[in-house]
Amino acid sequence: MKKVYVKSFHALSALSEAPDLKRYVSPIDARRMSSIMKKIVVTSMEALSKAGLETPEAVIAGTGLGCVENTEALLMSLSGVSGKPLRPTDFMQSTHNTIASLIGIRTHSHGYNVTYSHHFLSFESALMDGWLRVASGKCSSALVIAAEETSEVLAAMLAKIGYDGSAGSDTAVSIVLTDSPEGALCELESVSLTAPKEGESYVDRSEIAAKYGENLCVTALGACDAIEKIAAGGSSRIIIFNRPPFKEGCATVRFSALCGN
């Protein structure tokens, strides 16, 4: 298996400044796209541009709930609450793969294109697949996206089933993986949907959520912090342990510094 490297990333979180949407989204597109879609376009184009890449060989997205604004409009219509007919846009955008599909179209990427939707583990599922693509030599680059949209209605709903997501905000993260250490920020050693080994020290999901606010893909922000810290020489190895607050499963992601090559 080949080694896998992180070439670049771009993240938008509650702590980020408002992005310059106009740079990547035309006024016509802006009218059609939900706010989370616009953010995903920004993070993906920024990450690709930092990586010096126009067309990634794979686009892999992870999103637990997809485009919430469109899904809410869809459910308001289907349940008869809004009394409005269903709009084709809301139907199309409420399928989770609309994110990776849009980025595929925008980057003219005819390569591997897959979307994961596994609640709190969507990001790690996508990252694991990206790692697999590059490690197996099937792709030399992969764009991995994590995105979650929030809304007041959704936060209230989630609170009813014991998940306090009210402090979170829309989150979009794009990470470019490559098979070359040249210009890379760090190595992505491994991604598994299992717990860390006995005795391994790790950054826990709860620490990341304390910084950014609870969000289904908050560990993607933790991953970006880890990559940045390693790239700046502040650490040689960081392991992130994602233990979802109330769902089955967990994930472990290991980043390490480039080893002198």
């Binding site: 599922s125 949907l193 089955e248 499963g249």
Partner: peptide
Amino acid sequence: GTTTDRIASLGRPGKIPFAWATTIST
């Protein structure tokens, strides 16, 4: 994802018998 977990646990709430589970949505 919860749908997948519940199928994995053969319809009953609780621990899944598999190593891990994930969901593809394309």
